[in-house]
Every structure is written in structure tokens, then in C-alpha cells.
Write a protein that binds this DNA or RNA. Sequence first.
DNA 1: CTGAAAGCGCTTACAG
DNA 2: CTGAAAGCGCTTACAG
Lengths: 341, 341
Amino acid sequence: MPDSSPSRGRVRLVDVADLAGVTKSVASRILSRDETLNVRPSTRQRVLEAAERLQYSPHAGARALAASTTGALSLLIPDLTNPVYARIARGAYQRAHELGYVVLLAEDTAETDAGADFTDLVGSGRVDGLLIASARRDHPLIESGRLAAIPHVFVNRTVPESGRNVTVDLQLASRVAFEYLHGLGHRRVAHISGPGDLSPARERERGFSAAAEQAGAPEPLVVHADFSEAGGFAAVERILDERPDVTAIFAGTLPQSIGALKALHVGGRRVPQDVSLLSADDLPMAAYLAPALTALELPLQELGTAAVDGLVHQLRGQPARDVTLSARIRIVERGSVAAAR
Amino acid sequence: MPDSSPSRGRVRLVDVADLAGVTKSVASRILSRDETLNVRPSTRQRVLEAAERLQYSPHAGARALAASTTGALSLLIPDLTNPVYARIARGAYQRAHELGYVVLLAEDTAETDAGADFTDLVGSGRVDGLLIASARRDHPLIESGRLAAIPHVFVNRTVPESGRNVTVDLQLASRVAFEYLHGLGHRRVAHISGPGDLSPARERERGFSAAAEQAGAPEPLVVHADFSEAGGFAAVERILDERPDVTAIFAGTLPQSIGALKALHVGGRRVPQDVSLLSADDLPMAAYLAPALTALELPLQELGTAAVDGLVHQLRGQPARDVTLSARIRIVERGSVAAAR
DNA sequence: CTGAAAGCGCTTACAG
DNA sequence: CTGAAAGCGCTTACAG
């Protein structure tokens, strides 16, 4: 096979144009599916075949430079370890792929201090916009003000006044949780929430308490804790201390639930005979714990999908908007919740 | 403040050069830390300050185009949900950051069929190279042959003959596991491995069996299973069926251990009184299960670090090489393993 | 229906 | 020590 001498071994647009017997202009327009273009079907065909045969893959940088668009989105998640984000990420990937975007994932913990790096992802023209699931309230990205010029969306968190929040209706979800427990006769109920400054945590609390008030039930005890096993453990210690007669606990995340289970065990409570435990986050693992956890299922994959839709909406020049998902919130019953005695 | 009219609001190299009173050439060389450059300290100072003041962030695409290097690496992981990869990713991030690279994470499951997308990440000049932790044996990336022209490294998996494998010495790790159990008097031992075609699984098996043989112990029962809770559950069912007198089980992953715990419980075995369970993957959660899991700790973060080093080594024109980590392999003792009765 | 040409924002020999 | 200029591989008005 003769070498058509592409520089550095890269197949360029001009190579496929040459092979197809057209100019770069036409090739470019055909390959980028320019709708306004009228070409003979046979020409189109030749170009497509040439691209295929040469395994042509446009240079993203050159395209970004010329068109000032990258075709890439970045998803910033606070904790790779939390499977909740895996679900969101999958939804995001899938939709992005459908829309012709690539999504680049990045973990954005306080330790990595990656905030700067990530603003730079957009600043340096690597991505067109940001899907921000990082939950830190005083995130450098937000504080910096650099976000203002950048298309972005907040996922699973809420930044007041931003008009860019894509969230599950956590107040509704918490209400569902409360009413489920209340319906089983539980009257002394506690809720393990997240760190006080995180918006999802605040909303769960609000929904839970509001539901209690509306039901005329005693005010639930709300305890703030880290979203981790250790957090759940410590929270239950405090709950048992302040309210030893508690009959049901609603934990905000699965890791917290695992810690809670342990602390209940240590505290001599049987689950669910003495205390019922309802977990947020329905993940495969929940079914394998002892007892299997009854959990609140949320539309996480849909959240990822909606986030990409919201961001792409902005990229197309539409104004940002809040999106709240309230479908597909339900309780998956397993063994950790029983009727109050 | 007067508008210096940057196009599209972007601050360009020429803007900082102007502000500093030099040409683009000099500014470029100073900002990209060109060692061979000799400039007056005062000039360097002015350029750096100008860049700082304008919040200059070079256009990654333009740079990629001109220098044919992107400063980005991509880490492909098979399952976002598995915390093992989070640890590897953190190590990779940190080292990449130190070396001036950005790392872009992507989940590469069979379902997303993302193989093509990812080859394209390099093909399209978005990243300089790939850190491949995807474990599928017949991965489209490998099959396609396109990988040949692309700097890459396999992380936590081994592709024979590739000379690009960055791994923990799993044979050694399994030996450590076996000898720990053997030392406690266990003679009827089983191992829950992964799907038969995954290289880490095969190596763990080999190491485990070899250690048994060397100790003159009976051959361990090895059961293949999915790396999930369900896999661990099914594996233990089979083990109890084939070898009801088993006294110790070594599970290859934490999710498998969780499933195993459940199956042992269902099978009427107490852990560790009747059967000891040793888990691979020491993660925070292990301490909160009932019983707390004794686990094999592996140098996962170091694995990520070494992978980046290996890839950057290639990017600098050095030949690829295998790297095997054998330090920091140890047993973290908790409650799930006891001496044989 | 198709082509010639400018320009996106950088880097990097090559000159001075 | 610093500058002028070509070129990386695309897209996109603008012409024909």
C-alpha cells in the first residue's frame, strides 16, 4: 500500500478529501453533518467511505480551535467511592453519547484541591461545559466567580439563585420515607442527615421534618453526620444517647446505613425488631447486608441524563433552568424495616 | 477598566505578551518553562505577572495542534462502582498533577460499548495516552490493533507480551493470604476467584494454589464468580455444596466478601467460629460489617502512581516496561478470621 | 453543488 | 537575549 505521507502518521481531513476527490471544505461539511449542505448522494457516499477506510478521526484540538467547541463535557464528582455517583455518571454518559458528546469524569475532593484544575478544563478549552456534582458549599469553583462565563449545571445539589440545579426532589423523597415509617406506626423517628452545609442534606431534613409536622407527629430527631460508615456509626451513638426509645431511623446514604447497622448492633438493638432502619440509595449491596436493607430508590440515572440535557440546552444558547425530578421515587422493601410494636 | 478586546472573551497569549511588553515567542517560552531559554529575570517576572493578572489559560487545542501534545491522560476503569478503582484513580491523579498532566477518567463497561469512544480519545488528539484498567480480556481496544500506535499502559491487569503491565504482585499477595490462613491451622481452604478470563483473577488463583502446594497442604478449592455481591453469594453456595467441611475462604474482592458473608449466614455457618473469611481489598467499609472483615491490603494508590509514571515514561520516548509492586502487601486483622478448631 | 482562503491560538526552528 | 514567520488541522463565510 502506497504511503500518502500523512504527517506524524495522522490521517487528516485533506487525506480523506483527496481520496474522495473533493476539497477539504466539502469533506468537512459532510463529515460534520452540516444540514444546510446540498451534495450529490454519490459525493457524500465517497467521502464517508474514504473517512471510514482511512479510519479518519478529526483532530479535536484543531476542531476546537476553528469551531470553538470541543464536543466534550466534564462531570465533577465529589467522591469516586460513592456508588451513587456511578449511577449518575452512567446516565450522563449515555445521554452525552447520544448527543455526540464525550464526557470526561473527574473526582473533585477537597484534598485533591482540583478546583483550579477543573475551571481550567473549560478555561483551556478542553471541554464545553461542566456538570458539577461536587457538593462542597464553598467550592473554589463557585467562589472564584470564573464559573460565570462557563456553561454549567449543578447535579444533585442546589446552589440558590443559580437557576441551574438539576436535582431529585429530595423533599418529596424524604416525605415518602417519613410517611412509610409513619404508616407502619413509628412515632419516635430519627434522621441521619449529612454535613450541615450540604444542600442535599438540608433538603432531606426539611422534607422529613415537614412531613412529620404535617402528619401531626412528634418532631423527628435530626443528626448531622459525615456521609460515611463512620458518620453513620457516630450518628446512631448520638441518637441512642439522646433518644433511647427511638423505633425507626432514616439514613441519608448507604455508607451511613452500614455504620448505623453496626452501631445499633453494638448498642444492643436488633434490626428491625427493636429499631427499623430505612436507607437512602438502593444499591445491589443493600440486598446482601444482614438484615437486607429496605431502601429508598431514587432516579439517579435519570438525574445524569437530565443534567446532560440541561447543559447541552445551555450550549445551544438557551437560558439555564432548574430541573427537578420527582418520578420513580419509591421504597424497596427488604428486611430492615418492620411495623412499630 | 479598558477592554483590550480579546476575541470571544478569551485571554490569549498575545494579550499577556502585550501587557508584559514582549512578543508571543518569548511569552510562550517563559510560560511553558522552556529550560533552554535565557531571559532577564525581570522579563520573566513581567510575563508571569501578566499571565497571572489576566488569568491566562492557554488554549489546550491550539497547544495540542502546535506541539502535538495534549498534557492529558485518560484512565479507563471497568466499574465506577468498585472502590478499588477509586484508590487507583487517586494515586494516578496525584502523580499526574505533579507531572503537569490532567487525567480524565472514563468508565468503560461492556454495556457502554465505549471502547470505540476511548480509542478516539487518543485518535482525536484529546489525550496523549491511556491508562487501561479495564479488565475485559477481549477488549475492543486491544482487538482493534489501534492501540499499537498509542502510548498506553495496563493497570492492575496483565496483557501477555505487552510489556506494559503495571500490577501488584498478586501471586505474592495470594501467597500471603494463604500462608496467613494456613498458619492459623486451616487445612480445608477455598478461594473465590473472579471470572475465569480476567488476568488478576488468574494470578490470584495461581499464587494461592502454588502456596498451598509449597506448604504441602491439600489443594484449595477454587471457585470462579462474578466480582459482585451476587457472585460471592453464589460462590459460597457452591463451596458449601462441594466441600461442606471448609474452614476458611479467601475472597478476591470486597463485594464478593459481602455476598459470601450472607451466603455463609444463610448456610448456617458462623463467621469466624465455623468458617473464617478473608477478604481482599481493605476499604473503610470492611471495618463496619458484622463481623468486621479481616482483609488483605494492597498498594492501590501506589499502583495508580506507578501507572502514570510508566505512561509518562513512554511519552518521553522511553521503551515500555512491566512494573510489579510487591511492597505494602499485608493482612489487616479484624474479626472475620480465627484459628482453625 | 463545490472551491479558495482566512483564521482559530498556539509552538518552534531560524535569524538576528 | 528577543522577534518574525511558518505551520499544526480544522471550520466557515464568501465566491463562483
